[in-house]
């Protein structure tokens, strides 16, 4: 009897820990929304999202330049990181000899493990001066931030794409080679398409990482609230906006920073839903027989 009671008791505790991640998410959403909604309501959602001016001293809160800043840095980072990381993941999954794999796997782990503040510091002492010397201006710029983000999202995209490529059954590879295809033809026409949904998921998650990155970007982007005229001009992202001003914000300004957090939260959840939907759809098509 006591044994059974103990079992029930343990099961309840485990259940509680199991649902704790849901509870934490709900708690986070509730708190971010309850602190952020007042600003969104008083400024108006449209004015908040598309307002061109961010001037806390006069109570004007428009985050549009920051949205552009986030999208621009993320977009350029993806433009650079996607080709490099796809090549690298194909190299790891299909081409690299075992010794090379043994070197490259920890490399990617290492890149993923470097703290973002170290990346930011590296950008500050290497990339920013380089930009200043070669392209003029302060060196704090969209491009500086994008370059740092590129390196930071490489490991995410590489490791998830590699898993996707590796999960393609070896039979496809054999069948294609046996028909006289070269290795590259096999990769391009068979393996890559079969792994595509996983690769898209990898890119989406890399994108999420770029959007959410704060410290590295704050240290190299210049943080000027403006829609930059070129990639050599400074810019401020949504995440930096929060980190820069939380220290002294009060009242509606404080609330507006949480409202910025709402946007980030919403974007990340939408990205995750898309990634999950792609995976789900892939399972359905393979099972159902239709492409």
């Amino acid at each position: 009897m006591t044994e059974k009671k103990e079992d029930k008791f343990v099961q309840w505790i485990l259940f509680a820990t199991g649902i704790s991640s849901i509870l934490i998410i709900i708690l986070i959403i509730v708190f971010i929304f309850s602190e952020g909604l007042p600003a969104m309501l008083s400024v108006g959602l449209f004015n908040f999202l598309f307002g061109m001016v961010w001037n806390p001293d006069n109570g004007i809160f428009g985050v549009f330049p920051m949205i552009i800043g986030t999208l621009l840095t993320t977009f350029i980072a993806l433009l650079l990181a996607v080709p490099l990381s796809l090549c690298c993941s194909i190299f790891l999954a299909e081409i690299a000899p075992p010794n090379m794999r043994k070197l490259l796997k920890p490399t990617i782990q290492g890149l993923a493990g470097i703290p973002s503040v170290i990346y930011g510091f590296f950008g500050l002492v290497i990339i920013v001066p380089f930009m200043r010397i070669h392209f003029g201006g302060s060196g704090f710029s969209v491009l500086s931030a994008s370059l740092i983000l590129t390196v930071m999202i490489l490991p995410t995209i590489i490791s998830i794409s590699e898993d996707a490529l590796r999960s393609v059954p070896y039979e496809y590879n054999e069948a294609s080679l046996a028909l006289g295809a070269t290795q590259w033809q096999t990769i391009k026409n068979v393996i890559f398409p079969a792994a595509l949904s996983g690769i898209i998921t990898a890119i989406i998650l890399g994108m999420g990482r770029a959007i959410g990155e704060t410290m590295a970007v704050i240290m190299v982007a210049g943080n000027v609230v403006q829609i930059p005229g070129s990639i050599f001009e400074p810019v401020r992202t949504l995440t930096s906006n929060i980190a820069l001003e939380m220290g002294y914000a009060t009242g509606i300004h404080y609330s507006a920073l949480f409202a910025t957090g709402i946007i980030l939260l919403a974007v990340i959840i939408v990205l995750l839903l898309i990634a999950n939907y792609i995976n789900y759809k892939k399972r359905v098509t393979i099972g159902g027989g239709y492409l």
């Binding site: 991640s21 708690l27 957090g261 980030l264 990340i268 999950n276």
Partner: peptide, 25 residues
Amino acid sequence: KAIRFGSEILASIPSIVFGLFGFAF
């Protein structure tokens, strides 16, 4: 499924948003 999705979101929320929550809560 909800727990898995919850922990996926937790893993992807930007750290500054955790910072906001930590401060407020």
